[in-house]
């Protein structure tokens, strides 16, 4: 489709703020709450390990205090997650996708389709139980500009992905081919060699001392 190239007044531009955002599937609230609970159970396990390491597990006062603290913070994060659910929403236009999230700290990301490098649909363990998927959209802008829409029905997620990929006119960048030729059949040696590759990979990255011009400016 060709764009007409006439100048537009900014006041006539399509407005993101006027978009109707669509909320996530209602079951995603349960997914989200369950995953918070799983996180906090892991934290509880760490606390218990810590307490027994310091020999405080059977000290009733300490135990109750930590349990109380744990319950309090888990409660707070559950409430935040619950209230935050209805602030998660997405919207599509002909040429871009938008997602907003956050209860106290809000954020809203917009990505034009033809800046999208890659899109995929994935499913976590809890999501699988509730038959929900998430759509992930990647750009060349790095992590800060990636967009994830969770809480979608798998069919819907897939059709969204197809829609986006059709729209993104970007030619596929060929990945450098890495072909592996098996020569050694010794798994132990292979492992050693892989470890070595990994250490070598990180070794060579040196951070260059920044030029010493004024960094007096505080960030924030």
């Amino acid at each position: 489709m060709e764009f007409e190239n006439k100048e537009m007044e900014i006041s006539q531009l399509p407005k993101v703020a006027d978009l109707e955002f669509k909320g996530l599937h209602k079951d995603f609230l349960q997914v989200s709450i369950l995953s918070v609970i799983v996180q906090w159970i892991i934290i509880l396990a760490i606390i218990i390990t810590g307490l027994s390491f310091w020999g405080l597990l059977f000290n009733l006062k300490v135990f109750l205090a930590s349990l109380g603290g744990w319950l309090l913070f888990m409660g707070i994060s559950l409430i935040l997650r619950w209230l935050g659910f209805r602030h998660k929403a997405y919207a599509l236009r002909e040429r871009d996708i938008h997602y907003k999230t956050g209860l106290l700290w809000r954020s809203e990301t917009s990505i034009p389709f033809h800046r999208i490098q890659h899109a995929e649909v994935s499913q976590g363990l809890i999501e699988r139980v509730f038959k929900l998927s998430r759509l992930k959209v990647f750009t060349a802008g790095g992590e800060s500009s990636d967009l994830v829409v969770p809480g979608l029905e798998p069919d819907h997620a897939n059709s969204l992905k197809d829609y986006i990929l059709n729209k993104s006119a970007l030619e596929k960048v060929e990945e450098a081919e890495v072909e592996l030729f098996e020569e050694s059949h010794d798994p132990v040696l292979d492992e050693i060699y892989n470890d070595k590759l990994e250490t070598e990979g990180t070794e060579e990255i040196q951070s260059q001392p920044d030029d010493s011009i004024g960094e007096e400016e505080q960030n924030g």
Binding site: W105, R106, S107, E108, T109, I111, A140
Partner: peptide, 8 residues
């Protein structure tokens, strides 16, 4: 520009 993000 690859993406535009608002944060508050």
């Amino acid at each position: 520009v690859q993406a535009v993000t608002f944060s508050q």
